[in-house]
Design a protein around this nucleic acid. Structure first.
Ligand SMILES: NC(=O)c1ccc[n+]([C@@H]2O[C@H](COP(=O)([O-])OP(=O)(O)OC[C@H]3O[C@@H](n4cnc5c(N)ncnc54)[C@H](O)[C@@H]3O)[C@@H](O)[C@H]2O)c1
Ligand SMILES: NC(=O)c1ccc[n+]([C@@H]2O[C@H](COP(=O)([O-])OP(=O)(O)OC[C@H]3O[C@@H](n4cnc5c(N)ncnc54)[C@H](O)[C@@H]3O)[C@@H](O)[C@H]2O)c1
Lengths: 229, 229
DNA sequence: GAGTCGCTGTGACAAACTTCACGTTGCCTG
DNA sequence: CAGGCAACGTGAAGTTTGTCACAGCGACTC
């Protein structure tokens, strides 16, 4: 819902015709699945295999790869290594990209642990917290700064992604600070939709809503078929 | 993608015509926003106010409320209290619903903390871990059991929702155990799509993919408009 | 108590997204 | 080296999802 428009303005050099949110999400999943393939397996893969792994249809996979201009060979499928690289060419910033996290609480610490050891292509490189007990320390190899330092740190390191794990009442204010410091993309774990101008991108990670969805469908879905005897 | 079919089989008494995943998600957000309204504010609300809060359009809000058969009054809008109750009538199980979490690591502990203190309507009431150091202890008021106890605990407590926070290689196996024990809905934080039969509902919480999405759009989105001087 | 205003409910429309289905291509077999 | 097979690429059709726009209604004004 964030990008209602075709979502790709006359961007920079990367001239891909506006990929949508869903396409980007699927490409990300494809890549991760491909990277996890045991290297013993064949160097090619079929669309229907990738589809099965990612819980999609083969047609969906083929069309997604079509949109990034990647082409396989009939009867042998797609070259795994090349495909990983091609998806990377779309998803990854050539120069790399870095993220900042604000709110080093229960959730924030878990994410820090996860995304600092993670791939070099997209790492959390700075954290911020209002609590003076926390700022100044280094948690999971990531330095925690006081809020006042945010503008400088973000600008100096060229951080473009912000992860918000502060309590809900602070989320909007924190997001605006990050935006002011130059951050353009937001991953918001606080249970409050953020209101930011159109040139910012916001992804809501609403875990409570997801729980409620699961609970609802766990009740509502068709029951298991009775097994014949 | 999970429920391709109209998604509501001849369910139980609740005779609402198959709400979709997105509708449920939006309803959940509406309710939370309404509950957080300061009680000082008026007891009615307009569709466009709710829309603004939830980052939707007014038409979307009205249509969502139409699907649950809730009706407002022209020129005064919707009764907030009644609306909260009406959404609850759809989302909540009358008898309440409980969840189990598997994998008491960094992320699992954060979630336990969050969803045990939480609302009585949907709580995590049991946790499981393979690590004998952890099972037997009580973390955030929630008892952690060894894996072997899962079938009994789940059955005895009638748990229907499962939260998966184990490492990716174990996720599929753990999900199957939970399914076998009677759990029907899954919230999966492990970065591997689960493969379960059609009578189970799976929601993938793929944080890594969300991060990559945000990074992509942070780069790709239109830049801030230049301010006139 | 007639008029005006603004919000709801909803049919019709539009856009986004997915699937179908088939021509095309390249490999493998005999 | 011809024939068969299986997978790709993609226009077209289908489905789902969101938006428009307006009739109708209720409240409030004067
Ligand atoms: N923990 C979970 O599993 C979970 C699940 C769903 C949603 N959330 C949401 O994620 C957010 C964080 O949850 P948590 O459990 O980690 O909470 P927490 O209380 O453990 O952590 C919050 C942290 O944010 C810091 N903080 C508070 N105000 C701040 C501000 N203005 N600027 C910077 N830092 C500030 C606090 O010092 C603290 O370290 C909350 O919005 C919560 O609703 C958490
Ligand atoms: N931590 C994060 O921020 C984060 C972010 C995105 C995704 N994830 C995913 O969430 C999952 C958990 O992440 P984490 O950081 O909490 O990892 P963690 O290593 O801290 O915790 C994993 C826990 O699972 C337990 N476990 C391992 N195998 C098990 C099994 N077969 N049955 C039951 N319990 C088992 C371990 O004992 C441990 O307590 C992983 O799949 C990870 O990829 C985590």
């Amino acid at each position: 819902m964030n990008p209602k428009q075709p979502l790709n303005p006359p961007t920079q050099q990367r001239a891909l015709p506006g990929l949508t949110e869903k396409q980007i999400a699927r490409l990300s999943v494809y890549r991760r699945l491909l990277q996890e393939l045991p290297s013993a397996s064949r160097p090619e893969i079929y669309s229907h295999d990738l589809a099965e792994m990612s819980r999609n249809t083969a047609a969906q996979v083929r069309r997604d790869l079509m949109t990034i201009g990647f082409t396989g060979s009939s009867a042998r499928g797609y070259q795994v290594e090349q495909l990983i690289a091609a998806i990377g060419g779309t998803l990854d910033a050539p120069e790399g990209q870095t993220a900042a996290l604000c709110g080093v609480g229960n959730l924030g610490r878990a994410l820090l642990d996860y995304f600092t050891i993670w791939r070099p292509q997209l790492r959390i490189v700075a954290a911020f917290d209002i609590d003076p007990e926390k700022s100044g320390r280094v948690i999971h190899r990531c330095r925690v700064w006081p809020l006042a330092e945010m503008p400088q740190v973000v600008r100096e390191q060229g951080i473009t992604v912000g992860v918000i794990t502060v309590p809900a009442p602070s989320a909007q204010r924190v997001a605006e600070s990050m935006l002011g410091a130059g951050i353009r993309g937001f991953l918001n774990f606080a249970p409050t939709p953020l209101h930011l101008p159109a040139h910012a991108y916001v992804e809501e990670m609403d875990i409570t809503t997801s729980m409620e969805k699961v609970a609802y469908f766990a009740r509502t879905l068709a029951p298991a078929p009775v097994e014949e005897s």
